[in-house]
């Protein structure tokens, strides 16, 4: 369950009158939902995603995941929280090109408490499940759709309860976009909270809830999210 209260974020912290990049007084999203944050460019979608994932600390307010407020945490605690609770998928995949698909999926084992051996089975299972062939190939030899699926496997390898994705279908064709949207549905049905920034109608159409922002403010909600 995500609970946002009095959330306000300004990039210019020195100026109290500066326009808020994000301002959401109240928001609740039940756990296990596939939520899309959408809106025009500059509306604060990505900023909200960074705030919800703890990558950015808000100027005011609270963001609680299953009752745990991540705003008062210092940076190290938020790193630790993200490592334990969140997976990330990016628009440009951000895979490490010099590594194989398998190494990319298990990269977080280098800085987590899990050893490579512990995640090995899960990584291979995910790659197979997502239809990524020959895990030992270098990243550049995979298609863009395959690369995005590798990035999804990387985000899921520690089985986090929350998945964040920033414009994950922006560089994919319609077939791959649909495939990825279906994966998000599958994951949410499996109990994971999936928070996706997107303006792709395919993704928006597949979501359980849609949060529409404009100028950092919530202008529309659909389905079960509560403002």
């Amino acid at each position: 369950m995500l609970t946002v209260s009095g959330l306000l974020h300004r990039f210019d912290t020195a100026d109290a009158n500066a326009r808020a990049a994000v301002h959401i007084p109240e928001l609740s999203v039940p756990a296990g939902r596939f939520v899309v944050i959408t809106g025009p460019s500059g509306s604060g979608k990505t900023t909200l995603l960074y705030l919800l994932s703890g990558l950015l600390r808000p100027s005011q307010g609270s963001i609680a995941w299953s009752g745990q407020d991540i705003v008062p945490m210092h940076e190290g605690q938020r790193d630790d929280w993200r490592r334990r609770h969140a997976g990330f998928v990016f628009q440009n995949f951000n895979l490490i090109e010099e590594m194989t698909a398998y190494q990319n999926v298990t990269v977080a084992a280098y800085f987590s408490a899990f050893s490579d051996r512990q995640v090995r089975g899960k990584a291979r299972q995910l790659l197979a499940q997502l239809g990524v062939p020959d895990e030992k190939r270098q990243i550049s030899s995979y298609s863009r759709g395959e690369q995005q699926r590798i990035a999804l496997a990387r985000a899921l390898v520690f089985d986090p309860p929350i998945l964040f994705a920033d414009e994950p279908t922006a560089s994919l064709d319609i077939t791959n976009s649909k495939g990825l949207a279906e994966q998000f549905q599958v994951l949410s049905r499996a109990g994971k909270s999936v928070i996706v920034v997107s303006h792709d109608p395919v993704v928006i159409g597949a979501a359980d809830s849609v949060i529409r922002l404009d100028h950092g403010r919530l202008v529309a909600l659909s389905s079960e999210a509560v403002a």
Binding site: S53, L55, E75, G76, D79, D80, R82, R83, R84, A86, G87, F88, F90, N94, I96, V107, A108, Y110, F111, S112, R154, A155
Partner: peptide, 16 residues
Amino acid sequence: RTRFAVLRALGASRGY
């Protein structure tokens, strides 16, 4: 810097 930021987003600490 993007690679370091991605590692951070995946949970790597600043120390790492």
